[in-house]
Design a protein around this nucleic acid. Structure first.
Length: 1036
RNA sequence: GGGCCAGUAGCUUAGCACGGUGGAGCAUCCGGCUGAUAACCGGAAGGUCCCCGGUUCGAAUCCGGGUUGGCCCA
């Protein structure tokens, strides 16, 4: 191999970042990403769908997490033989984009947008959408996320919109898309309804007037139903009262009037003796009771003003009777639909009362509260006023209190599809599985009709045209629109262009105009399975190949977002689930567990991590720390730790292999038959194949956490810390031996196995390890099959044996430590019980790890112990009472070992005042004592003894190793290359000199010394050994 | 205000579906090893398994209540 190739192969192993840069070059050069997108084409599909981000803000660490999860799963399936199309996607529409543009233009409401002009406004939106697309593309490549960004789906293209239109028309044809009312949070100042997300930002605790109002029952004198509200201004619009059907209500006499309220509330609100009970009845008994309206400014268009029953009525506050104004509350509105109540809406878009409300017309409704209270008080209809503290939403932009308003809009009747949604949900595998019946399942149970319409500008226009007679027509394609309108060219499908398109009503011939709405952008992304392929206008076969999708993964916040909109659209249009498995990952929080946000300044910039530790470190950190659905407390130190503990180990083993393989000219060809390799090699390969088996089963269940941990454990514990450590000397030998060749073969195969195993998780390191190992099976590890276990290599017994051996070595080291005997000091023997006996090859590992001359296996260790005995005070006391003290004194004078052997052989006599007494073994307690020269390490069944007696040869050998170590330290301090030759001049105490002389050859060999003279020189460095003084001088 | 998830050593966490003396890694301290590694090996110290109650011979684990945090929704 040429010098150049050598450099190329080992370059980039020094750090994560340089490694990844070299791999990125390699990928670009060999077009690896492009190949992966085509890889296994024609084979079985793994049908993945990328959730489209909006590229109007730069990506953060949480985007990295989602992409890591998606990439890892897709890479695995790709290596397992599936074709994995990975079309990129961009979500373009929606209020956040409009708001960003408003900010940019320095405007803040719809009037100003219209003044600015819709056409230039949406042009700005179009530009704004991709303002950070370069950041996203660069991040995607740098992270190693395989995604087709050259042919992405883009939700604002006419093609995409056309597919969305098609699906809406399908839904419309089924009668599931129609006009209706809904209650939306509305800011009267901004003149717009707010999304739930915006509303959530503005909740505050406030105090509002809370009043008790008497509604006079029709046909009954002096009898009133007592209701309660915190929004007096909605009383103008009251059309019903609601009670709980299954609670008890009382008719009471109170201060001269008959009042009806819930029994539980009466007990809370009124003092005993203030009232007397006339009648007790169920809420359901009150249903239908008619009462006199409080106000009649607006004539209702259908019957109202009677008592309804509703489960949402609580006994927590109020009177157990809820005033119902269907125009101003969601519960009210739903109840209104159930009872076909009239809708009284006397409030203008700016939040003021309309002309009809004569006394307060033009007044902001909340400002009218005190006047309405005053009016009711004068009419004698108020029973009390308090201030009531509760949570109320305010506009996040202008801090105006929001009103809940009935607004017209177009709805998809999801309530009619509930069962279909639930059935389709049942065929989805959720990670974690509690989502299925928990968060998502609960949501589907209470699914509401989907208000699709938005009174905005930048979005997919709702493709519904209406004529003055109220007929409506849904348009399902560009062709259809052209046909209906007779226009040959429609500039684009966005507002305002599409608003200008009109056509005669198919039913009455009058001119149809498009309704002005755009649609909820969640419908756009929910249409991705078909709209990304421009189905059904193109790609019909490809669509059917890819539907439903096998896999999606996004953050848990998408439960009611994309996860829902995908299922909603697919259920409404195709009556199928859109996806069959879904990983919901948790959020990436800062190191303190707080949400990352710009305002807190705790957002981590992915590029700073890429620059310091690289993409694999962040990927591995996020995947191996805990399951994806556990929140990630993100710390840069954690990423560094991952780099240090795992990735750098992988790099170093690879570097070790490459360095020596190049010295020896080794290539991983014509490798030895694995079954005939040394025991420790077969052990490593058994571990490797077991790893493969585990990984396949983990990954088939999307268990990224266990899989990555299994890889790390193998690479760090088995390969680096044990196999390489124990076998280092096999690679150092000068001559080409079979034992050396097999070591290379085994190491090369293991590195290859690690490269393949980790490829989906840490694609850069995997590639580098693969390329460095030199297997030469193609340009990229990612194009190779994921490793399948070779069960003929699995040897469970051998693995157990090795585990025991490693445990025995640990115990031996622990024993050395207990007596402070350095490993450098050779010892004569160790004795092992409970592990082994091992074959000579494995035994030699123990001998070298523990630095002992001999390893002895025993099943019984008792003969290594001394038996001692001491008098048993309990036995003596019971037999000899007060005299036992005399006996004890005599016995303690005898050596305990002596005592034990004498008692074991017979009895022992002691002198008492009345004569001598023979004591047998029942008066003694026996102990096993390990003689001083031995140390013991013990755990469970395994027991290790070390003989610590150091005779003269061992002592001298120990000295020689001390000397070698000092010389090596000095070589290192001098920054000598590891193969540099040196001249040595040594001097010191007589004992140290004897050690040097006795092991002269060993010292010369180990330190690569050309000469060793016993000579005192001034430049020599002083060392203090346990065995005496040493002075060393080295000349290179 | 409602729903879901979580709280384990200074830090990051495993264990919990199926109850039986709570394991790792990092950090700290002591000792060792070192011709791949900012590596490694041995040891020490560090725990009210968030709190209260219940079930049980026995609870980190199961049940109920609370609390703190995260998420979703109002």
């Amino acid at each position: 191999m040429s010098e150049e190739n050598e450099n190329e192969r080992t370059s980039g192993l020094s750090s994560s970042v340089s490694l990844e840069e070299s791999v990125l070059c390699h990928w670009r050069e060999h077009e690896v990403t492009g190949r992966l997108l085509e890889h296994n084409k024609g084979g079985q599909y793994f049908r993945f769908l990328e959730g489209p981000p909006t590229a109007n803000a730069p990506p953060g660490v949480h985007h990295i997490f989602a992409r890591t999860v998606k990439d890892t799963v897709c890479r695995y399936r790709n290596m397992k033989g599936s074709f994995v199309p990975r079309m990129g996607g961009w979500d373009c529409h929606g209020l956040p984009v409009e708001i960003a543009v408003e900010k940019q233009l320095g405007i803040e409401n719809k009037d100003q947008i219209e003044k600015y002009g819709i056409e230039p406004f949406i042009k700005k939106c179009r530009e704004s959408v991709f303002s950070y697309i370069d950041d996203w593309s660069r991040m995607t490549e740098r992270l190693g996320y395989v995604l087709d960004l050259d042919h992405p789906y883009i939700t604002m293209t006419d093609q995409y919109i056309e597919s969305v239109w098609w699906s809406l028309k399908e839904i419309w044809k089924k009668g599931l898309l129609s006009e209706g009312h809904t209650i939306v949070p509305y800011c009267p100042r901004c003149g717009t309804s707010l999304s739930s997300h915006e509303v959530a930002q503005g909740y505050r605790e406030v105090e509002d007037p809370s009043i008790f109002i008497k509604f006079k029952v029709m046909g009954q004198d002096n009898t009133y139903i007592l209701a309660w509200t915190t929004t007096p201004w909605t009383l103008i619009s009251n059309v019903a009262l609601a009670v709980h059907p299954d609670e008890f209500y009382l008719v009471i006499e109170h201060k001269g009037a008959n009042l009806i309220l819930a029994e539980q509330r009466a007990r809370v609100l009124l003092k005993e003796g203030e009232y007397s009970i006339i009648r007790r009845l169920m809420g359901s008994d009150l249903e239908g009771t008619r009462y006199e309206p409080l106000y009649s400014f607006v004539k209702p268009d259908r019957p109202g003003h009677f008592v309804c029953t509703a489960d949402f009525v609580t006994m927590e506050d109020g009177t157990g009777v809820v005033h119902i104004a269907p125009a101003f509350g969601e519960d009210d509105h739903n109840l209104g639909k159930a009872y076909d109540l009239p809708m009284v809406q006397p409030v203008e878009a700016d939040g003021t009362f309309s002309e009809a409300v004569t006394p307060w017309k033009g007044m902001f409704v909340k400002d009218a509260d005190p006047l309405i209270i005053e009016d009711l008080t004068q009419r004698g209809l108020l029973e009390g006023t308090h201030l009531y503290a509760h949570q109320y939403p305010f506009c996040w932009r202008c801090d105006t209190p929001l009103l809940y308003y009935a607004r017209k809009g177009y709805f998809i009747r999801m309530t009619q599809l509930r069962e279909g949604l639930q059935r389709n949900n049942r065929s989805i595998t959720w990670y974690p599985d509690n989502i299925k019946n928990g968060r998502f399942g609960n949501f589907l149970e209470e699914v509401k009709d989907w208000n699709l319409s938005r009174e905005r500008y930048w979005g997919t226009p709702l493709p519904i045209w209406k004529c003055p007679k109220g007929h409506d027509h849904a348009v399902g394609s560009i062709e259809e629109l052209k046909g209906l309108s007779g226009m040959e060219h429609i500039p684009e499908l966005h507002r305002p262009y599409v608003d200008a398109v009109t056509f005669p009503c198919p039913k009455c011939g009058e001119t149809m105009n498009r309704v002005s709405y755009v649609i909820d952008c969640w419908y756009d992304s929910g249409s991705a399975p078909h709209a990304s392929l421009h189905y059904p206008f193109e790609n019909t076969e490809e669509f059917h190949n890819q539907f439903p999708r096998d896999f999606i993964a996004e953050g848990i916040d998408q439960t009611r977002g994309w996860f829902y909109s995908l299922l909603a659209v697919s259920t409404a249009v195709f009556d199928k689930p859109a996806y069959l498995s879904c990983i919901c990952h948790a959020h990436v929080l800062d190191a303190e567990g707080k949400k990352m946000s710009k305002s807190k300044g705790n957002v981590v910039d992915p590029w700073s991590i890429f620059a310091s530790d690289g993409a694999d470190a962040i990927r591995w950190y996020l995947l191996s720390n805990s399951a994806p659905w556990k929140p990630k407390l993100f710390s840069v130190d954690g990423v560094k730790e991952t780099n240090r503990a795992f990735l750098s180990t992988v790099r170093n083993v690879t570097g070790f292999y490459r360095t020596y393989a190049d010295l020896d000219g080794y290539e991983p060809k014509d490798r030895t038959e694995p079954h005939s390799r040394p025991t420790i090699d077969r052990w490593l390969l058994s571990r490797l194949n077991r790893l493969f088996a585990e990984l396949n089963s983990y990954m088939d269940d999307n268990n990224l956490f266990q899989a990555s941990n299994a890889i790390q454990a193998f690479a760090v514990e088995d390969l680096s810390n044990w196999y390489v450590r124990v076998n280092r000397r096999r690679f150092w030998g000068e001559e080409d031996t079979a034992i050396k060749k097999t070591a290379y073969d085994t190491l090369a195969e293991s590195l290859q196995g690690i490269a393949l195993s980790m490829a989906p998780f840490a694609p850069f390191h995997a590639e580098k390890v693969y390329l460095t190992t030199g297997m030469e099976l193609g340009p990229s590890v990612h194009l190779l099959p994921y490793p399948a276990p070779d069960i003929t290599m699995a040897d469970e017994d051998l693995e157990k044996e090795m585990a025991n051996l490693r445990r025995a070595v640990e115990l031996g080291r622990s024993a050395r430590n207990a007596k402070n005997v350095k490993v450098r000091q050779p010892l004569s023997r160790c004795v092992i019980k409970g592990a082994g006996p091992f074959n000579p090859e494995l035994t030699s590992i123990i001998a070298s790890e523990l630095n002992v001359k001999e390893v002895i296996y025993e099943s019984d260790l008792s003969h290594y112990f001394d038996m001692t005995a001491d008098p048993d005070p309990k036995a003596l006391g019971m037999r000899f009472k007060a005299q036992s003290a005399i006996i004890k004194e005599q016995l303690l004078a005898i050596d305990t070992k002596d005592l034990a052997s004498r008692v074991k052989q017979g009895t022992i006599s002691v002198n008492l005042p009345e004569g001598s007494q023979e004591l047998d073994s029942s008066f003694f307690r026996f102990h096993e004592i390990l003689p001083e020269r031995w140390v013991q390490g013990i755990e469970g069944e395994i027991e290790v003894l070390l003989d610590t007696e150091i005779d003269e040869p061992l002592l001298l050998e120990g000295i020689s190793r001390e000397v070698v170590r000092r010389i090596q330290t000095m070589r290192k301090d001098m920054d000598l290359p590891y193969d540099a030759r040196i001249e040595l001049k040594l001097s010191g105490d007589p004992l140290v000199i004897r050690g040097i002389e006795a092991y002269r050859k060993y010292i010369v060999d180990e330190t690569l010394a050309d000469s060793l003279t016993m000579e005192e020189t001034p430049e020599a460095k002083d060392w203090d050994l346990d065995q005496g003084k040493l002075r060393i001088a080295i000349r290179a």
